[in-house]
């Protein structure tokens, strides 16, 4: 069973190889890439194509590695103790399994997504080294050891906000999702919107790639922005001609709110458009 491009998700050959390597050797796959190039979606697609259940663990700046394993809710136990609840005598009632625990004890093999690992503290990946390597951990409160029944496929995404430690990287396969080139982008668009009029798609891609070429944009629009924008264009039933920037006319594409996500970029664009008009 191997991973291939699906109807909805276009994977390049190098991505397929990386995913298959990670699945075959049962090691984590670290995925990086510009925001909006489909890192998180990849995990969903891998799970779907392998026919496995996906367990998502979204990382925030306050997330600690321990939370992925389990948490001991001492505070509820203390409260229950005061109220005289009978539950208080069994510590198991206050051990809350985390995402990795759930994945380890699952009767069928699963896919685990650790999303945006770089959001957490700098020590976070180090704290998970052993658990991801051996797929086992110890619960100190109850004295039991949890071992994975089936080693899950672990997909980790990172936005490069922090450097990941070497020891962690050594245990992973790595894939950098490059920004899709034009033919790939065309395939992605076709996969998502098979009914899109071809003239509109062509013009929209033209505008999109031109927009990405504008120097100095703070956030270049990526695949997800393009897909949102196309959806809007289709909903508005925009004619393809509306996208064609005629000589000396405004360079701002219609419904640009879906593509440009901050006011500085919009402002920059308006200024460029103004200059264009003046030159004409």
């Amino acid at each position: 069973m191997s991973f291939r491009s699906t109807e909805r998700y276009i994977a390049t050959r190098d991505l397929e190889v990386a995913v298959n390597a990670a699945v075959t050797l049962e090691r984590p796959l670290l995925v990086k890439g510009e925001p909006g190039t489909g890192k998180t979606v990849l995990a969903h697609e891998v799970a779907a194509s392998l026919g496995r259940h996906l367990i998502e663990w979204h990382i925030k700046s306050t997330t600690r590695a321990q939370q992925g394993l389990y948490e001991y809710d001492a505070v509820s136990r203390l409260r229950d103790g005061q109220l005289g609840d009978a539950r208080v005598h069994d510590i198991r009632n206050y051990i809350i399994p985390g995402k990795l625990w759930q994945a380890f004890i699952s009767p069928e093999p699963v896919v685990v997504l650790i999303d945006e690992i770089d959001k957490a503290d700098i020590e976070f990946p180090n704290d998970l080294l052993l658990e991801l390597d051996r797929m086992t951990f110890h619960v100190y409160e109850t004295g039991e050891t949890v071992t994975a029944r089936h080693r899950p496929v672990v997909i980790i995404t990172s936005n490069n906000e922090k450097e990941l430690p070497d020891a962690f990287l050594r245990r992973c396969f790595f894939h950098y999702i490059r920004f899709p080139d034009r033919p790939t982008m065309q395939r992605i668009v076709d996969a998502h919107y098979p009914n899109l009029r071809s003239d509109l798609a062509r013009e929209a891609l033209e505008v999109f790639f031109r927009l990405r070429d504008v120097p100095g944009l703070k956030k270049k629009p990526a695949t997800s922005e393009l897909l949102d924008w196309l959806k809007l264009l289709m909903a508005e039933d925009m004619p393809a001609e509306a996208l064609r920037a005629k000589e000396g006319q405004s360079a701002i594409p219609p419904l640009h709110g879906a593509l440009l996500k901050n006011e500085q970029d919009v402002h920059l664009f308006e200024r460029l458009a103004f200059l264009n008009r003046r030159n004409a």
Binding site: D14, V17, A21, A22, L29, C172, F173, F174
Partner: peptide
């Protein structure tokens, strides 16, 4: 592709 995923992190 495989070598790249394995060796370049």
């Amino acid at each position: 592709h495989l070598a790249r995923a394995t060796l370049a992190k």
